[in-house]
Design a protein around this nucleic acid. Sequence first.
DNA 1: CGTTCCCTTGACACCGATCAACTCTGGTGG
DNA 2: CCACCAGAGTTGATCGGTGTCAAGGGAACG
Lengths: 238, 238
Amino acid sequence: MNPLIAKLERVAILTDDDHEAITAACRDVHRVPANKDIIREGDKPDHVHLVLDGWAARYKDLPGGTRQIIAYLIPGDFCDLHVTILSEMDHGIFALTPVDVAYIPRTAMIQLTLDRPSLTRALWWATLVDEAVLREWIVNLGRRDALERIAHLLCEMHFRMKNIGLVHDDRFDLPLTQDEIADTVGLTAVHTNRMLQTLRLDGLLTLHGRVLTILDIDRLRQLAGFNPNYLYATPVRQ
Amino acid sequence: MNPLIAKLERVAILTDDDHEAITAACRDVHRVPANKDIIREGDKPDHVHLVLDGWAARYKDLPGGTRQIIAYLIPGDFCDLHVTILSEMDHGIFALTPVDVAYIPRTAMIQLTLDRPSLTRALWWATLVDEAVLREWIVNLGRRDALERIAHLLCEMHFRMKNIGLVHDDRFDLPLTQDEIADTVGLTAVHTNRMLQTLRLDGLLTLHGRVLTILDIDRLRQLAGFNPNYLYATPVRQ
DNA sequence: CGTTCCCTTGACACCGATCAACTCTGGTGG
DNA sequence: CCACCAGAGTTGATCGGTGTCAAGGGAACG
């Protein structure tokens, strides 16, 4: 099952035709090994990239050697819908795990949106949710302390992974090193480590071998100030 | 002159018909006094709001009484294109100055995008630039120190204001209190004050009476690590 | 002419960064 | 099967950037 179809169907009504159009667009699948770039800053790809399996991360490198992770991409997420319109990538995307990526030709994407208003609307919903996530990350970085930031990130990924059926018993794959978490929440790896220990000691979660188990989602959400409304897991307005 | 038309024409070719359609859509103008909400979290507006004159800010309040400003809206910017699709606002927007806001009916907006593919493409470009700005703000909050953050914000607003013709001799209206700047860059007002003084002492800028004069844009940009590529002031791909 | 924001300043506290080991784990090759 | 190794996680000591609290000053406005 195509994860994009599954994602869009949660919020919109797609016809069989739409299904076929999406499936057809996703014919060209590439496997990218872990820790390799899917796209680099400055690229002008002729394809739109869609994550079918695995995790990827959007990031920017700064002069000085630091890095900020800007988004996590999980199955069903587009890497770069915007290069349909914008001139080039202003950031890179790398694979956190081995990732299956569908290469959808730019022209096919444009055709899809011209032919299928309801599908276009669903795709638009997806980009708006991505945008809402960016806003919440700004709040996270700007106004929450270290412990809350990490807790909030974990709550969000729990919610998103659950949405696509990849959470069982509040347990899911979190293929991130503590360095990567640190580069996401604007902390150092050392402090991230200490905060994760605090969360463990408080009995909120366990995390080893890239598997996260949330032991008390209610308390974790309360600690993080997590409110999933920004993820808009609700039907699209007609 | 409608600032939305001016903005879109910098990157796309619009017909006279497009102009008229935009002008017609912007008939219903409301003036919102400074410090009043234009939209609140939870609202389900039937109109899309477009800033015609003045500054507004997108924000989220947190339990605990803190606030994070998520975006600044200047003439030509939409407040909430997304409520065309999403169920309700997950954040508020307030006026920083008295603001002229065009209320564009949701239905008119939908009609516009159905009838005018090239205009739709230009609007899409605008939302993608907004998204790129959000990404850069995440980098700003996550990986730059206090001085760099403020410098970067000022560089960005200088660039955006220049783009719409509101900068003369590197001088422009910056209608923000230090509290508001602090709530934007994730600092306290006290520390924001000290950093602004540092920037002044370094001969980079002057700021009083809500007017910012940048004395040395090159050095300010270098200090901030500012690269305007993310603002995509370039023509839209066809 | 007083009131209310807003800006400014100083002293001090503390969260998270930095630096430098050390441990653990999983993978690889002999 | 074991020895080794690299990457990831952990720990401790110390430093510094930013927060906090409190007070005072200045400018706009009724």
